[in-house]
């Protein structure tokens, strides 16, 4: 009885653990596609610079900084943000950031799940097609 139970446990664990070795695709594609990219890092840093700027403004209004310091520091952060924007431009971020991210994701997804990325879903309320993975319809805003 004990031996049978133990054996069963080993088999279940073995199957569970070893399946990916045979089922999942080989190579390192997933790592490359799901890893943090330069775009991610730039965006995160940009968000941080903006939040620093907000903080700076707040602290200035609280009376912590002299006018001169505030202007100097604000200019510093703003030029940093401008530089990040230039870097983002270099990565091909056109005027619309959302669109670039969408494109980036779509490209990665197409490689990750070949065949599924083009799929669309029909909106139940207006009938427009939306790409899979969206939770709201782009046409009417209804929930998908």
């Amino acid at each position: 009885m004990l031996i049978a139970t133990c054996g069963l446990l080993v088999v279940i664990a073995g199957i569970y653990v070893l399946t990916p070795l045979f089922k999942e695709p080989g190579g390192n594609l997933e790592v490359e596609l799901l890893a943090e990219t330069e775009l991610d890092r730039l965006l995160a840093r940009k968000a941080m610079v903006y939040s620093n700027l907000k903080d700076l403004e707040f602290e200035y209004k609280m009376g912590r900084l002299s006018d001169g310091d505030f202007r100097r520091l604000e200019a510093g952060y703003k030029s940093e943000a401008a530089k990040l924007l230039q870097d983002l431009d270099r990565l091909g971020v056109a005027k619309d950031l959302d669109e670039t991210i969408e494109r980036d994701i779509a490209a990665r997804k197409a490689k990750l799940f070949p065949g599924t990325a083009e799929k669309t879903r029909r909106c139940p309320s207006c009938g427009a097609e939306s790409p899979l993975g969206k939770s709201y319809c782009a046409d009417c805003g209804g929930k998908l």
């Binding site: 200019a75 510093g76 703003k78 030029s79 943000a81 401008a82 530089k83 924007l85 230039q86």
Partner: peptide
């Protein structure tokens, strides 16, 4: 020298 401030900022 600071890069010119981007209006997008």
């Amino acid at each position: 020298e600071l890069p010119p401030v981007d209006p997008r900022v």
